[in-house]
Amino acid sequence: MNIVVCIKQVPDSTHIRVHPVTNTIMRQGVPAVINPYDLFAIEAALQIRDTHGGKVTVITMGPPPAAVALRKALAYGCDEAVLITDKIFSGADTLATSYVLASAIATLGKEQPVDLVFTGKQTIDGDTAQVGPGIAKRLNLELLTYVSKIVAVNREAGKIQVERRAEGGVQLLETRLPALITMLEGTNEIRFGSAPDMFRAARAEIRTWDRESAGIEDLKKVGLKGSPTVVSRVFGPTPRAEKAQQIAFDPAAPQAATDALLEKVLAEIPKVGKELERHKVEAGAGANHE
């Protein structure tokens, strides 16, 4: 199996803060990590390789420091890595990103046909879940989103069966290869690479592709220029016109405060009163709890 996994390096969201004064994102010192959703894609790909043979290539489109994310993927056990980086790629939205990634995967396919492409469900910075479907459409791959389990792979027959999380249940799907899978979170656990893997990853050569080596045909489709969407405004949330009404609370007499609160709520927000009324009647019936 020749498997490609698309990963993205993202700022570790738990460390991002908004500057209280300028209302801008403070990026300084925020560590970059592999998009956590992509780890499930990496592990799924590695498991298929381990049972069916072949190789796993990780690719990312991003600035040169994104190589760190690729190296990390190699340390997990991926075999090869390609960094797709070029100044003209910057400012890309999902449409432009999927164009670049699709071109690169097609280029890899010329070396050896690609059987499977994996992406994460979504990124934690873009959060769109669009890049995977975008790549599939551009390469005319069968698309399997929100896959929760790889049920069977039959390379000779060129077939794959997966379980897919649908809105009201789980679909069991069968399709042909090549296909693109976006992997659902929580479906596996990324492995802990061995010490030799760490050495190999640290010393590995990471192929770096620019627009030419990535096989980009139409430069108008990449970066800012190739992106139909633009951000027109970034802003902080607006407070409600009125600030919350403060209910004085004295720890010595806690219920005085909560009684006063209930009285206020009942007087001011009839809908709550109505809802409570229902529960008065239903009292004892009990709601559905675990």
Binding site: F192, G193, S194, A195, P196, D197, M198
Partner: peptide, 9 residues
């Protein structure tokens, strides 16, 4: 020895 498989260096 490090905390990984084949960890002797």
């Amino acid at each position: 020895n490090v905390d990984r498989e084949n960890g002797r260096i």
